[in-house]
């Protein structure tokens, strides 16, 4: 990955060799077909049925899809909320991750230590991290209130888990704390591939720090940037546990994400067919968003 920045346009191998490419992707394609495509087709079939968790399914055509966009206002609201969350969290993680990557890029033991520290929260599972933060911000038994009251500050935390925006801030803080170190690592390996000579040359030409970042560094690590953004945006659009455990939808189910609602529909209301339909809608949405990103970010400079 780190080499992605090497500024040489590669002409791919001749078509007669392409069987080697096909052969080498075949294990992956086989696994993905059996354990992703087949279940996905089954899920598509489920989505066309009134499929209770247990009991006999009945075919109802596109009724589930119609319902998703007509009577189920919670679903539409949850998609909007998910998009809002994604729009906020993505730049925070990307810019923050890039800044950290630039920060720990310089060689030496201390850099390695900081790198490890920034990465550490990422090893905590999402559910565990959410529980942890739920406890941190608890206004009667959590450590934040302990720390503030130890300094004699009477911090009013009551709104943190009750109102929409404060709740969102708590979640975003948690996710940033947990995930940013991973984005740092990804971007760091992209940065490693930017040749030092090019940066020096740009500096000699009088390019300032920002100029170097935007005209040399970022373009050269474009494949990494695309990958990080695709990964980060898909992950945010599928956000679930952090809201399920921290805000639990408060207030009035305004902080429910799409996947949260899918889980609720499938395993609390036992409407698995409907849950499948909502999952298909989300898959389509994510594919469209990704396709747009790839098209938009790749521009003309890169093939396929």
């Amino acid at each position: 990955m780190s080499v992605d920045a090497v500024p040489i346009r590669r002409s791919r191998r001749r078509r007669s060799d392409s069987w080697i490419g096909v052969a080498s992707i075949s294990p992956a394609i086989l696994l993905i077909t059996v354990l992703f495509v087949v279940p996905l087709v089954l899920m598509l079939w489920m989505s066309l049925n009134n499929w209770s968790f247990l009991g006999k399914p009945t075919f109802i055509g596109l009724e589930n899809y119609v319902r998703a966009f007509t009577t189920d206002t919670t679903f539409v609201n949850s998609i909007v909320f998910t998009l809002v969350y994604t729009v906020i969290i993505t730049p925070i993680l990307f810019v923050g991750g890039l800044a950290l990557a630039l920060f720990v890029k310089r060689p030496g033991k201390a850099s390695g230590l900081f790198r490890t520290i920034f990465f550490t929260p990422y090893v905590v599972g999402f559910a565990a991290a959410s529980f942890l933060w739920l406890w941190f911000v608890n206004d009667s038994v959590g450590p934040i209130s302990a720390a503030t009251s130890a300094f004699g500050i009477d911090l009013d935390q009551t709104s943190w888990l009750v109102e929409k925006w404060p709740g969102l801030v708590v979640v975003i803080t948690m996710v940033t704390w947990k995930v940013i170190g991973f984005q740092m690592i990804l971007l760091l390996s992209g940065l490693q591939g930017v040749p030092e000579e090019l940066l020096e040359a740009a500096a000699i030409d009088g390019a300032g720090w920002f100029r170097r970042l935007f005209s040399v560094i970022l373009p050269l690590m474009k494949p990494t940037v695309i990958m990080v953004l695709v990964f980060s945006i898909s992950g945010s659009l599928l956000a679930f546990e952090q809201f399920f455990l921290i805000t639990t939808g408060r207030p009035n189910n305004e902080t429910i994400t799409a996947v949260y609602w899918i889980y609720n529909v499938s395993f609390t209301k036992f409407e698995l067919g409907y849950g499948a339909a909502l999952s298909v809608v989300m898959l389509v949405l994510l594919l469209v968003v990704t396709a747009i990103q790839l098209k938009f970010l790749k521009g003309r400079s890169d093939e396929d």
């Binding site: 009750v162 639990t248 939808g249 408060r250 207030p251 009035n252 189910n253 429910i256 609720n264 609390t268 209301k269 036992f270």
Partner: peptide, 23 residues
Amino acid sequence: IQELALFNDANGPLVGLMQNGVF
């Protein structure tokens, strides 16, 4: 058969009633 959705669901009507009624 709807006990979970009516009462147990953290996003259901009973919890909503508590959040908006009691508090």
